[in-house]
C-alpha cells in the first residue's frame, strides 16, 4: 500500500514537472557549417537553460533550430516558429520590417563594444592599394542577406565609386570563408568578409591581405512576438548576465550588451541605399 502511494506521488510530481517545463526554440541560420553553428551555440544555450531555470524557477530547455538559409531563419523568427533568434543586423532589419513586434533582447559584446569590423581583402601579392582600384576587377561577396558580406561592403564600394556595373565580375559565395579562399586562390580579385574569418584564414596560410576595413554592429538576439513578457524579461536578464567564458568562447564574444533598435540605424541605412551599388555611375552622380 505504502509502495503504491509512493509510486503515485512520484508519478504526479513527474507529471507536474513535465507540464511545467518551459521549452524554448532558439533559431539561427547557417552563416557557417550547421555543425559549426551547433558547436558555437550549444554551450551558450546550455548556460542559458540553467540561468533561466533559476530565474523562472522552472526547468527550461532550449533546442537549437538551424535554418538552412537566411530567409528561412528570418521567416522562422517572423512567424514565431522559434522563440528567439540570433541573426545578423541586416536580417534583423528585414525581420523587424516584416514583424515590427519583434523585440531586441540584447546584442553581442565584442571586447565590450557593440561594433566590429568587416575587411575588404585582396591577394597577398595584389597590387591594389585602394577601393577605387578595384574597378574593372572581380569581387566576391558573402551572403546576399549578409550585413558585411553585402550591405556594408556594397555601401562602401558604391561610396568609393565602385559599382556592380564597373566590376568585371562579382558573385555571392554565401559564406565568409569561401570568400577568403576564393580571393586567396585568385578566383576573385577582392572580397568582403568579417575580420574574425579573415584572421583565421590568414593564420591558416591563405594568401590574402587587408585592403581596407569598415565597422559593423554586433549581432542582435531577438525575441519572437509570441514569447511571453515574463519569459522575454527573464531571457533578456539571463543573456545580459552571462559571463561564463566557456559558454562565450565558441561565439568569440565577451558577453551581451543591452540593445536598442537605434543601434542598427546605420545598417538600416546601408540596406536602404543598397540599390546605389547596382545603379550606373551617372545615376549615382545625379542622385547625389
Amino acid at each position: 500500500m505504502k509502495l503504491i502511494i509512493t509510486s503515485l506521488l512520484l508519478f504526479s510530481l513527474m507529471t507536474t514537472a513535465a507540464q511545467s517545463e518551459i521549452k524554448l526554440k532558439f533559431g539561427v541560420y547557417t552563416s557557417d557549417k550547421p555543425t559549426t553553428m551547433v558547436k558555437m551555440f550549444r554551450p551558450l544555450l546550455d548556460t542559458l537553460e540553467n540561468n533561466l531555470s533559476i530565474k523562472l524557477k522552472q526547468p527550461v530547455s532550449i533546442s537549437l533550430q538551424v535554418a538552412r538559409t537566411y530567409d528561412q531563419g528570418i521567416e522562422d523568427l517572423v512567424k514565431g516558429n522559434v522563440d528567439f533568434a540570433r541573426m545578423g543586423p541586416a536580417s534583423y532589419i528585414t525581420s523587424k520590417k516584416l514583424n515590427p513586434d519583434l523585440k531586441l533582447l540584447a546584442m553581442e559584446s565584442k571586447k565590450g563594444r557593440k561594433i566590429f569590423y568587416g575587411i575588404i581583402c585582396v591577394q597577398e601579392n595584389s597590387p591594389f592599394q585602394s577601393i577605387k582600384e578595384l574597378k574593372g576587377h572581380s569581387f566576391a561577396f558573402g551572403n546576399q542577406r549578409s550585413t558585411i558580406g553585402r550591405y556594408l561592403s556594397q555601401h562602401l564600394l558604391s561610396t568609393e565609386g565602385v559599382h556592380a556595373n564597373n566590376l568585371s565580375n562579382y558573385k555571392y559565395l554565401k559564406r565568409h570563408d569561401r570568400v577568403g579562399y576564393a580571393v586567396g586562390t585568385g578566383q576573385f580579385d577582392a572580397g568582403a568578409l568579417k575580420e574574425g574569418t579573415f584572421k583565421k584564414l590568414v593564420k591558416k596560410g591563405v594568401k590574402i591581405r587587408e585592403l581596407t576595413r569598415f565597422p559593423n554592429v554586433t549581432k542582435p538576439w531577438i525575441a519572437s512576438s509570441k514569447m511571453s513578457h515574463e519569459n522575454m524579461l527573464a531571457l533578456k536578464g539571463a543573456l545580459l548576465s552571462i559571463t561564463d567564458k566557456n559558454a562565450l568562447k565558441p561565439l568569440k564574444k565577451q558577453g551581451f550588451l543591452s540593445a536598442q533598435d537605434s543601434d542598427y540605424a546605420v545598417i538600416r541605412k546601408s540596406m536602404l541605399n543598397n540599390n546605389d551599388f547596382f545603379k550606373p555611375d551617372e545615376t549615382l552622380s545625379n542622385n547625389r
Binding site: 547557417t30 557549417k33 550547421p34 555543425t35 553553428m37 551547433v38 537549437l64 538552412r68
Partner: peptide, 9 residues
C-alpha cells in the same frame, strides 16, 4: 547527413 538533418535540408 548531420548538417542536412540539423538544417532539415
Amino acid at each position: 547527413a548531420i548538417d542536412a538533418v540539423i538544417t532539415e535540408d
